[in-house]
Amino acid sequence: MRLAASALLLLFLTGPAIATPPQDPLGSPMWSEMVERVLKSGEVVFDDKVKITVPSIVEDQAQVPVTADARALPGVTKLVVFADLNPIQHVLTLTPGKSAPYVGFRMKVEQGTPVRAAAQTADGVWHVGSVYLDAAGGGCSAPAMARNEESWSTTLGHIQGRIWRDVSGFARTRFRIRHPMDTGLARDNTPAYYIEAVKLTTTAGAPLATLEMFEPMSEDPTVTLMVPLAPGESAIDLEGRDSNGGRYRSQISAPWQNSVVTPRG
């Protein structure tokens, strides 16, 4: 009994040391908390194969273009993007399925902050790429521009999309969903209201990719993904859900021409 208790004590004492994340090269005071809150479990390593790209000059703190690319890393099962010093840190989670672990989008920032892309591989290890985004403040607490338009509710959920063939063999798919993406932090006290999830499938219903979104995504979120699309496929189906239970279903048509579509119900 005493030997078993000693073994349990040793496990308790050594467990946290194994789980301690590596030292952050950007020196963020929130790094350890981000690992615990966003990544939650699994070994964490910094890896140059995970690329996170942000502009050197930010012109609009509510519309900051970001690209997270883990295509150089084999076996990625999940790709998470977060910003350490944002009031709401978690930006999005991509479950690529058969799609490439790549996502381009725009986000809000409240101040200068490290921005991370963390790619989890099948062995449970998180491979993290980091960059410091130098920006002025106010993006997360600014009210949505659409609220200034009386007709904003009539275009809510409308989707514009386009598909291109890519030399990688994937189809580069870009779509925009009209939505205010309210953070709940604006001075006008508008409550949080945002798109929570987007699912892309073939017209036959085969899953292509799933995207979880959070409040820091920019208004009218515009997203680029790399999805597999067989030569005979003529379209991609898209289904979204927001935090008020609203659902948006549309279809982005191929072959490789602009398509502007409205929800089917």
Results as ranks from 00 to 15, higher is better:
87 P>I: 02
97 G>W: 05
142 A>M: 14
197 A>E: 14
204 A>W: 10
147 R>S: 13
162 R>S: 01
173 T>S: 11
235 A>M: 02
38 V>C: 04
93 T>L: 09
121 T>D: 13
251 Q>A: 07
222 T>I: 04
136 A>F: 14
185 L>Y: 10
185 L>C: 05
129 G>I: 10
127 H>E: 09
253 S>H: 05
32 S>N: 12
57 I>H: 13
40 K>E: 14
188 D>G: 03
163 I>V: 15
189 N>T: 09
217 M>F: 03
22 P>L: 06
154 T>E: 13
18 I>G: 00
125 V>C: 07
135 A>W: 05
45 V>D: 09
21 P>I: 03
107 M>Q: 13
40 K>I: 11
162 R>T: 08
264 R>M: 12
145 M>T: 11
158 H>N: 13
212 E>W: 06
99 S>Y: 03
50 V>H: 08
27 G>L: 06
120 Q>R: 15
36 E>S: 14
70 A>W: 13
1 M>K: 01
253 S>Y: 02
256 W>R: 06
255 P>N: 06
37 R>S: 11
192 A>S: 15
121 T>P: 03
209 A>Y: 04
162 R>A: 02
112 G>T: 15
127 H>L: 08
64 V>A: 09
148 N>S: 14
244 N>C: 00
54 V>G: 10
234 S>N: 06
108 K>G: 08
28 S>A: 05
33 E>M: 08
185 L>Q: 08
199 K>G: 02
175 F>K: 03
240 G>Q: 01
139 G>S: 10
181 M>K: 04
170 F>Q: 08
54 V>A: 14
119 A>F: 11
163 I>Y: 02
220 D>R: 07
7 A>N: 01
34 M>R: 09
192 A>P: 01
163 I>S: 02
45 V>N: 06
77 T>Y: 01
126 W>V: 12
233 E>M: 07
41 S>R: 15
142 A>Y: 07
142 A>G: 01
104 G>H: 11
13 L>V: 06
37 R>H: 07
42 G>T: 08
68 A>S: 15
96 P>N: 09
231 P>F: 02
246 G>Q: 09
164 W>G: 00
235 A>V: 03
255 P>W: 00
141 S>R: 15
248 Y>W: 06
29 P>Q: 12
225 L>D: 04
262 T>G: 03
9 L>D: 02
46 F>K: 10
121 T>M: 07
82 F>I: 04
138 G>N: 10
86 N>R: 06
112 G>H: 10
120 Q>Y: 07
229 L>P: 00
7 A>W: 00
244 N>K: 11
31 W>K: 03
67 T>F: 04
144 A>D: 07
262 T>W: 04
161 G>L: 06
258 N>W: 10
35 V>A: 12
188 D>W: 07
197 A>W: 12
170 F>K: 04
185 L>V: 05
213 M>T: 13
1 M>Y: 01
144 A>R: 05
75 G>L: 06
202 T>V: 04
28 S>D: 12
234 S>D: 12
183 T>D: 02
151 S>Y: 10
156 L>V: 01
55 P>N: 12
10 L>N: 00
103 V>W: 07
223 V>D: 01
216 P>Q: 10
149 E>G: 00
112 G>R: 11
106 R>E: 13
218 S>C: 03
